[in-house]
Design a binder for these strands. Structure first.
Lengths: 358, 358
DNA sequence: CATGTTTGTAAGTATGACTTACAAAGCGGC
DNA sequence: GCCGCTTTGTAAGTCATACTTACAAACATG
């Protein structure tokens, strides 16, 4: 069981190879690897791709690989302000179909659940291959049982979303916080460092932390929630949460929009605004990056706002606070591929839970 | 192999029990548990303690337990300013013998190594039972291979301490940073939360982080090193590292001593000083505790300085910055047992590496 | 075309845990 | 005091998984 996952993981990351290659890569014997591949072929997860182009001496091997185009995954991103979005994807990450369900203002919790369920159902109907599972990235705090403990934006409070969808759809379902989904996507598909912090800048500000390739969930499933931690010693604009100077009150997209508009009206350079906001992010991140000795910080959000001035200022503020006697280096960057990062995270979630790929 | 460690872990934490109890506690069958116990008895790690006082119906079981007093561990604490300290301990954590080697001012790296080796040798000679291994807590940054990458206080730079001691002493050796050792002690012997941050306030300020019961080491083995992260937006006293307002420049023991003396001379209340310093710590910890969603923060250091005002102020500053929409609670506290916390950490390190106990 | 290399699988072995079965040792009710 | 019931610890056999050994098939090279 454990070694089946090992083989799947190796295939996922290294691509098509022969059974003998697989044995060398995993450290198993050729016999064992061959047996495991047989089992996976029987499960219709792995397929043979014909003989390898002959290269050296010896019998050419038969390439095997995950059935990347013969298996599909449904992915949902519930973090959008205007709509719930979803897609049918194959294991390559290619989006084969998209659907959206607009969010009606002032939906009840039950209405939102029904809308999400309908979206998932419609996507499932669009899938034309075997569906491995459904991966959902939602705003809010999610338990490891897939219960949305609290999601103010959607009006959810203790909604057992995973069990609900699983009961209605009869396929495996994984539910996680949207920032966690994004971090998984960046880690597994984007080649992030095994130790990584990802900041998601949107209507709100959230984050996700990966250590040694695994998500950190925290004591109350709220790890990564840095939006409402005040920057520095205090002071600053009042935040919706009642405190002053929370990170979110400095760098959320709506807030940055306001500040940019103000600057434009007053004829001041926009760079000053973006640079100031980036600095706030760097200040807040410094203790985290220092305490965890991180080397990779990803900032996911609107590229037009974040790329350049904002990110440079954040990185400068962070580095100047971290640099010290330890040969520590840290880079701040945008995601390798920021399009549909939460949807791709949903794919990774299913791969992780169904195939043990991570 | 894996289940042997499982049995040892269960015995360590739950104490003497019968083979049948062990089976129920571990989820293994009685047959398997019995076989594993037999193996451990053959290895002279576990001993029978005679029949249990008859309680209910049925044949009374025979109690088995780790041979807590028949196995010993050597522990070294190299973090002292005036001396290297060491002890012979049994598995209960009882200190059976102590030794110290004074630090001569301006030792060379080689001299320090020789002193530490001699200390370990002398302790080993004092042990009168089988020695499981040597656990060393040292200041500085330590690789997972037991190489002290950099320890300015001792003048070490890339010293392969583990291999050195292992070669000379012929017993298993584990080397870790002193704060990490303290965190392991608190976690395993003091009943800390599986997610925990420990701050060590001494001549310098260090820290250690445990997530899901495991130490976080970070990308460059420097996780926990928060002493030289500036508090807040900057400003404050100049630090030895060249930056301004580093945590260490606010709350190190020497610095607190200075501040207290100043206050006494000026006739100001000492509480103000301690409260201000505690607040700095709370401010720095807020992003860390928020991002990791921690619920347990331990502050290890001189009780007379930290207990009361300092800790209360730190906790107040931390809580006021963290509190939010998530049902998150966090407590700051002193260690359950602050005496010899690094030495007890050395014991845990050996237990972890030799018996898989954690 | 003989030789050496590499692949994939068949057959047997070793390990570790599981299920089933049973003797030994206690308690309680009669 | 004895019979039935419960619990403990172990013996014997089964099952799953990976390993070692051995071999036929397919290819490159001289």
């Amino acid at each position: 069981m454990h070694n089946l996952a090992l083989v799947q993981r190796e295939l996922f990351h290294a691509g098509p190879m022969s059974r003998a290659d697989l044995a060398r890569a995993t450290g198993l014997t050729r016999v064992t690897a061959s047996g495991l591949v047989g089992e996976l072929i029987a499960r219709e997860v792995v397929v043979e791709q014909g003989p390898r182009a002959r290269s050296g001496p010896g019998k050419p091997g038969v390439l095997v690989d995950l059935d990347r185009e013969g298996l599909q995954v449904i992915s949902l991103d519930l973090s959008g302000a205007e709509a719930y979005r979803g897609a049918v994807m194959d294991l390559t990450g290619t989006i084969l179909a998209r659907l959206e369900e607009p969010r009606r203002g002032r939906e009840t919790s039950d209405q939102a659940q029904a809308t999400v369920l309908a979206l998932a159902r419609n996507l499932l109907a669009l899938a034309d291959r075997r569906v491995l599972g459904v991966g959902v990235g939602t705003p809010g705090v999610v338990s490891d049982q897939g219960v949305v403990l609290t999601a103010p934006n959607i009006g959810w409070d203790g909604v057992p979303l995973r069990d609900l969808l699983h009961r209605e759809l009869s396929v495996p379902v994984v539910v996680r916080n949207d920032a966690n989904a994004a971090a998984l996507a960046e880690q597994t598909l984007g080649g992030g460092d095994p130790d990584m912090f990802l900041v998601r800048v949107g209507r709100g500000v959230g984050g996700a932390l990966m250590i040694r390739g695994e998500l950190v969930v925290g004591r109350y499933n709220a790890a990564g929630e840095i939006g409402h931690v005040p920057v520095g010693e205090g002071g600053g604009p009042e935040c919706v949460c009642g405190k002053r100077g929370c990170l979110e009150s400095w760098i959320s997209v709506p807030r940055l929009g306001e500040l940019v508009q103000e600057a434009e009206r007053a004829g001041r350079p926009i760079e000053d605004v973006l640079s100031g906001a980036g600095t706030k992010l760097g200040i807040l991140l410094a203790p985290i990056v220092g305490a965890l000795n991180l080397s990779d910080v990803v900032v996911a959000g609107p590229r037009s706002l974040l790329e350049g001035t904002f990110l440079d200022a954040a990185q400068e503020a962070l580095r100047s606070r971290i640099l010290g006697r330890f040969h520590t280096q840290v880079r701040m960057r945008l995601p390798a591929d920021s399009d549909d990062i939460v949807l791709r995270g949903g794919l990774v979630m299913v791969l992780e839970s169904e195939l043990g790929v991570s």
